[in-house]
Design a protein around this nucleic acid. Structure first.
Length: 469
RNA sequence: GGUGCUGUACCCAAGUGGCUUAAGGGGAAGGUCUGCAAAACCUUUAUUCGUCGGUUCGAAUCCGACCGGCACCUCCA
């Protein structure tokens, strides 16, 4: 398997440090707002990477942190006139609701920054002992001049950065590029005791502390959006490698942005849609297919037109699932056993996914498969149920388990729904009788009436099926 | 100013030296099936990959120049 490593700017053979274990860390949200659909792209693509590694038999330990104390949260707390921890709790809950709706598999753990302040203090202490961190009146900064390879991930040279920098000069820093490890508390801000007085951690230090604690000093994969390469991930490397004196991350993965009219969707520009707003219009599967149809590293525009196109694609997949499930219910032992090389498609799927998670090609393999199967179904009068079991299995493994672009969740039918189903079945039977009597206008009344309330009827060879919108 | 990414059909998008005289999805057009629909199937929709040169037996793929688009260098996935 090959993974594109931002660090080397090349695809590299993926060899985890301690197979079959894979340690994966993803920079999670700062919980001061609902996350937007651009954030969702990163979360979903990381989810697909993680699912595929598991599909390949790796034992993936996947950590995603929650930043639950920072400037933005404090600002939001002032705006909403409630305590910062309440704001963080509120948006953490919203975060979990949304990723659940997006069918993102839960991480192994979601460590919170505020639960790891002691670990962060320990790292800062160590850096201070080594003479890399310096304390100016209760603010502790990282001295980048003490880390000669600073800039190695982003390819930035510190002298060039200085000349073009628009950073507001903080007089306390020795060098404008030095970054805060510990921030002195102002009145009314959340704070913790520390060797440097009351304060709170800087942003970058939490990932160093939490990734080390939960995954070890060296990890396999560290993922995040493109905008985190500099300075966030650069700073994480500086902190971790200066403190622990070993390579921090083997593979750096970065996700491209979701754009709106070719401009980055971002909270600061205000040109964003929240994931929950988009989920109100489109299913998780549609959103996931929309993302999977583009390679994770490139930019991608967001529009209703593109989402609708993905929606049609999803329907194509679920239509076949429906046919297969319908046939499996009928359980026909009669009919032909068509010759079909399921393994070929499975192998194709794996070989393109092995190539740096080429989800657009993986999706193409699935659609090729679907067309081939539909053709066989169209050409044969009766097909043995064994065939449909295999069809379903193939789609379950690829489209459902790995990509999550089709809904095959176990449905727990509540009693209202099952009465409803029986009523629909009854109407379908009545329509069937009407058709036999050639009373087509009445039969169409039934079909159109059901369509109006969002139930679509299809006459197929294996009988009539219905589906809710 | 520095750094990195990017330009493929009507839209989205893969492919990065011969397997491709370019996957897949959507859209459009025609046909088959159907009482009619829907779904599905078949056919058509880029001899061409921003432009111009070069390297090569061979290039969308490598090199150079030029023209666009975007991002990072400040919190942001």
């Amino acid at each position: 398997m090959q993974i594109y490593n931002t660090f080397s700017r090349k695809k590299e053979e993926f060899t985890p440090l301690n197979p079959p274990l894979v340690t994966m860390y993803m920079c999670g949200p700062t919980v001061y707002n609902y996350f937007h659909i651009g954030n969702a792209r990163s979360f979903i693509m990381a989810d697909i990477v993680r699912r595929y590694l598991q599909f390949c038999g790796f034992d993936v330990k996947f950590i995603m942190n929650l930043t639950d104390v920072d400037d933005n949260i404090i600002k939001k707390a002032l705006e909403e006139k409630r305590p910062a921890d309440e704001v963080a709790q509120f948006y953490s809950n919203a975060f979990f609701e949304d990723i659940n709706k997006l069918k993102i598999k839960p991480a192994t753990t979601y460590p919170k920054a505020t639960m790891h302040v002691q670990e962060m203090i320990n790292v800062i202490n160590e850096l201070e002992k080594k003479g890399i961190a310096y304390n100016v009146d209760g603010n502790v900064f990282y001295d980048i001049s003490k880390f000669p390879s600073y800039g190695k991930l982003s390819g930035k040279k510190t002298d060039e950065l200085e000349s073009g920098s628009r950073v507001e000069i903080n007089e306390a820093k020795r060098n404008p590029l030095d970054f805060a490890l510990w921030k002195k508390a102002k009145d009314g801000e959340p704070s913790w005791d520390s060797p440097w007085g009351k304060g709170r951690p800087g942003w970058h230090i939490e990932c160093t502390a939490m990734s080390t604690k939960h995954l070890g000093k060296s990890i396999d994969i560290h993922a995040g959006g493109n905008d985190l390469i500099f300075p966030h991930h650069e700073n994480e490397i500086a902190q971790s490698e200066a403190c622990f004196e070993q390579k921090f991350v083997k593979y750096w993965m970065h996700f491209g942005f979701l754009n709106i009219q070719n401009e980055k969707m971002s909270k600061s520009l205000g040109n964003f849609f929240t994931a929950r707003d988009v989920l109100a219009k489109y299913s998780a599967e549609t959103i996931r297919l929309f993302f999977a149809q583009t390679h994770y590293g490139g930019p991608l525009n967001f529009s209703d037109e593109l989402l609708n196109s993905a929606k049609k694609g999803c329907e194509k997949i679920s239509n076949l699932i429906e046919v297969a499930e319908n046939q499996i219910r009928n359980n026909s032992q009669e009919g032909v056993d068509p010759e079909f090389d399921f393994q070929k498609y499975r192998n194709d799927f794996m070989s393109v996914m092995d190539d740096d998670f080429n989800t657009p090609q993986a999706v193409a393999v699935i659609f090729d498969f679907i067309r081939a199967i539909n053709k066989i179904i169209a050409e044969n009068e009766k097909i043995n149920v064994r065939f449909f079991h295999q069809v379903k299995l193939m789609l379950k493994e690829t489209a459902y388990d790995v990509l999550g672009i089709v809904d095959m969740d176990e449905k727990h039918t509540d009693s209202n729904l099952s009465i409803e189903n029986e009523l629909i079945e009854l109407l379908i039977k009545v329509r069937d009788e009407l058709k036999k009597e050639k009373q087509f206008s009445l039969a169409d009344q039934v079909r159109d009436g059901l369509a109006k309330i969002g139930i679509t009827i299809k006459d197929t060879k294996s009988g009539v099926t219905f589906k809710r919108d």
